[in-house]
C-alpha cells in the first residue's frame, strides 16, 4: 500500500491535525442548536397561527413553562422516580438473568443447538402481549411493569451474550486450556472479556427498550409513573401538562442514551483492539 501519500485521502495533512476537531465542532453544534430552535419556533407558530387548535397543541412556550413548573413539584419527581425505579429494577433483573443463561447456554455447544429454536420463537413475541397476564397477576402494582420490562429487555441482552460467547477465539481458549486454566478460570479470563463488548451493546439496547416498556405499562395498565401521569393529564384536559410530561420522557430517553453510550465506551476503552472488529 502506498497510502503514505498525505494528499491521497483528501485534505488531511499533519499540520492542522490536532486543532481541527476542536474548531470544527462548534459550527456543527451551532447548526444543531439552530435546528432545535427552528423546531421550537415552528411549534410555537402552528397553534399561534391557528393551524392547529391551541386546545390540542399548545404553543411551545406554554409547554416549556409547564415543564419548568413541573420541575418544582415533588409529585413530578416522585413520578420520575417511580418510572426510573421500574426501569432500573427491570433492567437489572433482565441483565442478570440473560448473563447467567447466556454464559451457560453459550459455553455448551449442545445447549446452544438445543435452545436455538426456542429462543428464536420466544424472542419475537411482543412483550405487550403479556399485558393482560400482568394485570391479572399483579394488577397496577410495579410488578406488572417489571414483568414487561424484564421480558423485553432479557432477549436483547441474551442474544448479544450468545453472540459474544460464540465469538471467543478458539486459539486463546485452547492456550488457556494448555496452561491448565479450569472452566471457571477460562470463563473469567477468556470468555468474559471477549463477550463484554457484546454484553454492553446488549445492555444499551435493553435500556432503551426497558424505558419504552416502563412507560407502556404505566400508560396502559396504570402502574405508577410518568406514563400514568400522561394518561391522567390527557383525560383530565391538562393539555400543556401532558405535552410537558411527553417532553420529560424524551429528556429521560436522551439521558439514558448518553449514559449508556458513555458506559459502553468506558467499559471498552481498555479493550479497543477488540472493539473495532466487534461492534459494527
Amino acid at each position: 500500500m502506498s497510502s503514505d501519500d498525505p494528499a491521497s485521502g483528501g485534505p488531511a495533512p499533519s499540520a492542522g491535525r490536532d486543532r481541527r476537531p476542536v474548531r470544527r465542532l462548534p459550527a456543527k453544534q451551532l447548526l444543531g442548536l439552530a435546528g432545535i430552535v427552528g423546531f421550537l419556533a415552528t411549534w410555537e407558530l402552528i397553534p399561534r397561527l391557528g393551524l392547529i387548535d391551541e386546545r390540542y397543541l399548545p404553543p411551545a412556550s406554554e409547554v416549556i413553562l409547564a415543564l419548568v413548573r413541573d420541575f418544582g413539584l415533588t409529585a413530578f419527581w416522585i413520578s420520575v422516580g417511580e418510572t426510573m425505579a421500574a426501569w432500573f429494577l427491570g433492567l437489572i433483573i433482565a441483565v442478570a438473568l440473560a448473563v447467567l443463561l447466556g454464559f451457560v447456554i453459550g459455553s455448551s455447544d449442545f445447549l446452544r443447538k438445543a435452545t436455538n429454536s426456542t429462543v428464536e420463537f420466544l424472542r419475537p413475541i411482543p412483550s405487550v402481549a403479556l399485558i393482560p397476564l400482568a394485570v391479572l397477576l399483579f394488577g397496577v402494582k410495579i410488578e406488572s411493569s417489571l414483568m414487561l420490562i424484564t421480558y423485553a429487555a432479557f432477549w436483547q441482552v441474551l442474544i448479544q451474550v450468545l453472540y459474544g460467547v460464540a465469538d471467543v477465539d478458539m486459539v486463546a481458549n485452547n492456550t488457556a486450556k494448555t496452561y491448565g486454566l479450569g472452566r471457571m478460570a477460562r470463563i473469567r479470563y477468556v470468555v468474559f472479556p471477549t463477550a463484554l463488548p457484546y454484553l454492553m451493546t446488549g445492555v444499551r439496547l435493553a435500556a432503551t427498550v426497558a424505558l419504552v416498556l416502563a412507560i407502556t405499562a404505566e400508560l396502559v395498565i396504570g402502574s405508577p409513573g410518568l406514563g400514568r401521569e400522561i394518561a391522567l393529564a390527557q383525560s383530565g384536559g391538562a393539555i400543556s401538562g401532558m405535552y410537558a410530561l411527553v417532553l420529560a420522557t424524551g429528556l429521560i430517553g436522551v439521558l439514558i442514551n448518553v449514559l449508556m453510550r458513555s458506559i459502553e465506551k468506558k467499559t471498552l476503552s481498555w479493550h479497543s483492539s477488540v472493539r473495532s472488529e466487534v461492534i459494527v
Binding site: K28, I230, M242, T249
Partner: peptide, 24 residues
C-alpha cells in the same frame, strides 16, 4: 447537522406516549 439533534430527541421519546397525544 441542522436536524440531527432534533431527530435524536424524537427518537428518544418512548413511542407509546404518542398514543394519548395523537388521540388528542
Amino acid at each position: 447537522a441542522l436536524l440531527e439533534p432534533t431527530l435524536e430527541f424524537f427518537r428518544a421519546i418512548p413511542p407509546p406516549v404518542l398514543v394519548p397525544v395523537l388521540i388528542l
